[in-house]
Design a protein around this nucleic acid. Structure first.
Lengths: 331, 331
DNA sequence: ATCGGAATCGCAAACGATTGCGTAAATGAC
DNA sequence: GTCATTTACGCAATCGTTTGCGATTCCGAT
């Protein structure tokens, strides 16, 4: 790469000092209009762009946030990041996006990168295998704001932005109850993940509150294929479920594959309801009714909270996004 | 944020010069083992991380790439970026990911950010509305390597990494012919996009080469809903197609919705074949046969080429990823 | 005792932009 | 014409790290 234009070069050409160039470029009142015009003109002509490193070093402010996610797939983080990026760009910030691949080692390395880049703040969805919170404690000690989102560490206090999972599961359960479903196959995710526990308990509690504790059968599903198999078996059984609840998009996809194989009609033969980011449910016909856990909303809230905290108008808090029911035609 | 530890602080505490600290931290042979040990120990204790801005400013090398994409959605860019990020991280580089939202203005702003950040190189999939190539010419003038990928500008010469679209369409056509399909509904995308033209021409040519020019009906589809409607109508017509070809994932999704509504059986009643990144075809049952245009492969090739060019072992070139047919059970 | 040469470490100048302070010239008030 | 103020610009330090060039000590070899 050719050496980019610098203020010094501009100053030499115009026979001015670097100070004057710098001030002219940022509309400092000390500069004569005619001088400013000449500077801007030459800067434009020579394609001058300020060296972000020099600026950040001198002003000691980086204007960038670190974003650490386990993966870009999963149809959630992409929308979260999209929301974050848009808001950040509008405020003059940019993002360092780092993918941990659900590996605590890489996650740690990524945190170091954020520190080296002097990020003003970090957004992180922790890897599911992250057990040690020592690094987060250190960051707090150094007063580098860390906003946890989606997958938040349970036994560590900090900024947390997540969905109200209990409410999501409750909404789902209530809708199924209201639609008269009394023999539901409820598919939950990994029972070792706290998100599963929360959703499952709220789901069960809702049925119990309606005196319908026996209206659903729960099953734990680790991946798409397992969902496929579970639903496939259930549909063939003699007491076929009248509705299927899918805790995640992944489970929904597996379930829908099984339904497509069978001659089962949705929603007449069996109802489907999922908790989802909102993309997949629309891929089917009829569109699947779902409780929305929107990455966009989460991204907006996370960014707003970060900015407020940086501005000093907010304290360390745990915030929740309220999910809403989006009716398709599947229940 | 608290002020992070600096070499200067370390040097004061250890009564050494900053030079010695700096050298000790990077295993310079001039440093005595005992001294190095003491420095590393204190650095560890005080959580020292080098200021990336100061390093980049001094060494004049940023070790980061700019990545500009129209969007993160669409299940293609996410995999491309994932591939890029992994390779970059392994080489000690990181990515500045910028989303243009298919807006040429934002795209331009993003390019400026890359320049200000002194990115070593830029990967960009240009917005479909980008008509002016002036900015790219300027970048070439400044010898800042720009690698175009996926959506590459047609009338501008530069590094281009894209799929062999002609081959993808040819593969698709040949597979349909081989399977005996003679009444195909071929759904292409926006006729104003060059990618559509390439795929369409190769598709048509393949049929012509087999003396089967009349075996398919082409239709242009701008979005998912249009695909849904087109297929829906076609399936009800008295000369129902024996196969449907979908040029993109978006079209596939719309087509599959229509198929789910009808009582049509795949592949017995109608075959389905798509050109896809590979995620969606697996969501259906039977899994949809597709010609793979893998974001992962494209990402790997783009990064490798960028590194080779930077190393001087490659020249400005246009490279293509060869698509492969992945058989599901839909044809 | 002298000398050559490792082995260690420090000095100081960079990298590019910003900014408090100082100063010369221009302007205004009287 | 004098003095005070404003206008417009320059000086030089600074951010944190790197690195070429010395400088010092210490050692064994002659």
């Amino acid at each position: 790469m050719k050496a980019p234009t610098t203020v010094f070069q501009l100053s030499k050409i115009l026979k001015l000092s670097p100070s004057t160039i710098s001030r002219a470029l940022k509309d400092h009142p000390d500069i004569a209009p005619e001088t400013r015009r000449r500077v801007l003109e030459l800067a434009q002509k020579l394609d001058y762009e300020p060296n972000a490193y020099a600026v950040s070093l001198r002003t000691n402010s980086s204007r960038e946030f670190g974003v650490i996610v386990p993966s870009l797939k999963g149809y959630f983080y992409d929308s979260f990041i999209t929301a974050l990026e848009e808001k950040a760009r509008n405020e003059g910030y940019s993002l360092i996006i780092l993918i941990s691949g659900d590996d605590p080692e890489v996650e740690l390395a990524n945190l170091r990168i954020c520190k080296q880049r002097r990020a003003v703040g970090i957004f992180i969805s922790v890897s599911s295998r992250t057990a040690n919170h020592e690094q987060f404690r250190k960051l707090q000690e150094q007063e580098l704001p860390v906003v946890f989102f989606d997958k938040v560490p349970e036994h560590f206090s900090g900024h947390k932005i997540r969905f109200n999972d209990e409410r999501a599961a409750t909404l789902a359960a209530e809708h199924l109850i209201q639609k008269g479903k009394r023999n539901i196959l409820a598919l939950f995710g990994d029972p070792n993940m706290s998100i599963t526990t929360w959703r499952e308990e709220a789901f069960a509690q809702t049925f119990k509150n309606h005196g319908l504790a026996g209206s659903f059968t729960r099953q734990y599903i680790l991946n798409e294929r397992e969902a496929d198999r579970a639903v496939s078996i259930a549909l063939k059984s003699n007491k076929r479920p009248d509705a299927i609840f899918c805790m995640t998009d992944e489970i929904l996809i597996g379930a829908m594959k099984a339904i497509q194989v069978s001659a089962t009609k949705v929603p007449d033969d069996v109802g489907i309801l999922a908790i989802s980011n909102g993309a997949f449910p629309r891929h089917y016909h009829p569109e699947v009714t779902y409780v929305e856990t929107s990455g966009i909303k989460l991204g907006h809230l996370a960014f707003t909270h970060m900015m407020d905290f940086l501005a000093g108008t907010e304290t360390m808090r745990e915030l929740e996004v309220e999910p809403v029911l989006v009716e398709g035609g599947s229940v």
